[in-house]
Nucleic acid binder design. Sequence first.
DNA 1: GATGAATGAGTTTTCATTCAT
DNA 2: GATGAATGAAAACTCATTCAT
Lengths: 218, 218, 218, 218
Amino acid sequence: MTTDATPRLRADARRNRDRIITAARTAFTDRGTDVPMEEIARIAGVGIGTLYRRFPDRDSLIRAVGQDAFQRVLDKAREIVDSEPDPWQALTEVLLSGTDLHTVVRLSMLSERARSVLGDDPELQRCRDELLEIMDGLVRAAQENGSLRPDVSSGDIGIILSMLLQNIHAAPEDVRRDAPARYLTLVLDGLQARPGTPLPGRPVTPEDIVMNRPNARR
Amino acid sequence: MTTDATPRLRADARRNRDRIITAARTAFTDRGTDVPMEEIARIAGVGIGTLYRRFPDRDSLIRAVGQDAFQRVLDKAREIVDSEPDPWQALTEVLLSGTDLHTVVRLSMLSERARSVLGDDPELQRCRDELLEIMDGLVRAAQENGSLRPDVSSGDIGIILSMLLQNIHAAPEDVRRDAPARYLTLVLDGLQARPGTPLPGRPVTPEDIVMNRPNARR
Amino acid sequence: MTTDATPRLRADARRNRDRIITAARTAFTDRGTDVPMEEIARIAGVGIGTLYRRFPDRDSLIRAVGQDAFQRVLDKAREIVDSEPDPWQALTEVLLSGTDLHTVVRLSMLSERARSVLGDDPELQRCRDELLEIMDGLVRAAQENGSLRPDVSSGDIGIILSMLLQNIHAAPEDVRRDAPARYLTLVLDGLQARPGTPLPGRPVTPEDIVMNRPNARR
Amino acid sequence: MTTDATPRLRADARRNRDRIITAARTAFTDRGTDVPMEEIARIAGVGIGTLYRRFPDRDSLIRAVGQDAFQRVLDKAREIVDSEPDPWQALTEVLLSGTDLHTVVRLSMLSERARSVLGDDPELQRCRDELLEIMDGLVRAAQENGSLRPDVSSGDIGIILSMLLQNIHAAPEDVRRDAPARYLTLVLDGLQARPGTPLPGRPVTPEDIVMNRPNARR
DNA sequence: GATGAATGAGTTTTCATTCAT
DNA sequence: GATGAATGAAAACTCATTCAT
């Protein structure tokens, strides 16, 4: 749950730090990066002062959650790539790999604030670059073996993901739980290399969705 | 742009009201229902006092924007259904019909606050019910004529839409602009009645996504 | 009480603005630049929100108080120089001119925060430069006509002033009130050009005490 | 560095106590009695817990620093009085005796909080009374032998001192270092019994500046 | 006895809403 | 009716003090 840049912490402090990150991850992912800090502290079961002792401001907490989540997703992706030879299968597995991916997407593609914080962190840039590289490799391999339509690029996958991992307040609990898998499956059907409708727009490259780009503003 | 409950207004008052609704629609749709009220007033080019004279609180403004957007979407949907006999074509056209649909989705499916406000308004319920009925009709017709896969329901369409109409902060302007159409096309390919992967989860009915159901989670 | 950079304000807003500046001037001068903002609002008789509407943060309030006080001191100094031909007399009068000078000294020489804020404001730099120039002229003239000892410079005058304008919490009210005049008189006696003890240290130039110098830190 | 009320301490505890007092003395004198406690602990090189074990709250630390500094100043003053027969010389030497005097002045005349803490401590009252008595003796003797102007009293000396021992943030390091000696010399020139300007205000007696008088103003 | 973690009260700052001009 | 000022409750953040290791 941590990265090694953290100096040795006492056991109880370590535990609290982890609790805070867990609480923040959930809160950020479910409700956005603007949840009150007190709320995060409450969920973590610590005082507000403890939270601020570990993370001197919101950005620093966002960064820690981002590092943690990116690292987990990266580990998982490496594992999948290592064990699954078929690129289409591997791609599917990565995309369906769960809540850490959700967090990564929320932070790196949906929250403007988190994007800017994460984009400034060199360690995160390394994680992100490696992850994008892995995804890009899978996309190309799947296109080469004819399992993925040729008119998309790995940036499209990122965007599709970010679209699919939204919180749908309107739906009942079971529907919300199943939604990402259900609609991702549907999209994957659409992605398969069969004669399909030509897509409007252009393929979205990994470069299009990196974090530290001076983004279009209103 | 209004509903009939509105009493006769002086011409300039009328103009201000319209400007405010337009500004709020854009702001709510692009940045969520939490945008500062002063920001909306600024975009509308009126004083904050004027805004509050017309709409005594944020909920009342949300309601007005919702009524306006729902009405336009409904009009458009009726028109499409009247002029396009092929249900799959009609469905596609409705889904691609543009920014008012975006607003409706944002308010009725993505903002917890807006859902609760809109869910309490009887007139909006009528709009919503009629819209859901139209969509449901199209879905069933398309399934009957074999153009839409049978394991989805019109609630799925709503959820897909809400997923596709997100703001992707990570992408450059052109990508963001084209994203809904691009990925909706892709999804529509996936929706077509061809041998596809069985979908996980269950079909989502219109009832699943109506507004006034107490499913707020925290 | 204001500088002209301020756009036209409604009468009541103007009044509140003035009240806030007056309250802040007193509070800053008596108790330092760290007094709680709520306290300032309370003294001014306005809500905390009103204070923040006019002055979006503490620095902005410090700046306004500084501009106001510097302007008044400068006006007074010009007036004295114009009407009093004897440089020693004029110097004495300026130094004894009262509470605005106290404020200026407190902000520009005693509060580290205020120094940095004021040092960044071009208009204040102009005021300060002109004031230093006037003082420097008086000092040189008084030295030339033999009324001021030659081993001091106008920077010394600034430092002496800043030393004399402290709040002595230990003394009773009457003593505190009279202290600056009493001890300044005593110092002026020491400053007069009579055979005196050679001063340790070096003459302090105006450049030594300007505001925007990267100051010695601990 | 201690007073006898202190029970026997282990050697390392003793060392920590001394370090803390030294750190606090510097911090209080340079930056006022409001410096964060953690900052003091940091300078002392101990943990915050250690600081609080020795001094259960800020007031208790202020008291210890005050006792220590008063004791040193008193010792020094006694020594000077014993070895220097000329009262004006002795007075001058005491006033120029250095940083402990600075601390005493800061705590007893400039910090409202320290004044109230120190004023409640009987031991400190004894120190202070003896010190005031010594100074008063020197002042009277110097006036009797014609070396000190007659219209001042020993309270004036205290106030002059407190005014001269300020931190001038505006000046460069060398100027700040020399300032107290430089301006005290200047003031002493003004104090010498020569025909001088009549002083405004009244002589300030030692009673005027004792510590436990309720003259807090807000 | 030393340490650093935890806590929560106090401040700063923002913003929805009300009110005077 | 329009405007922008005033208000105060809520959220972010700091730091004195207490407590577990």
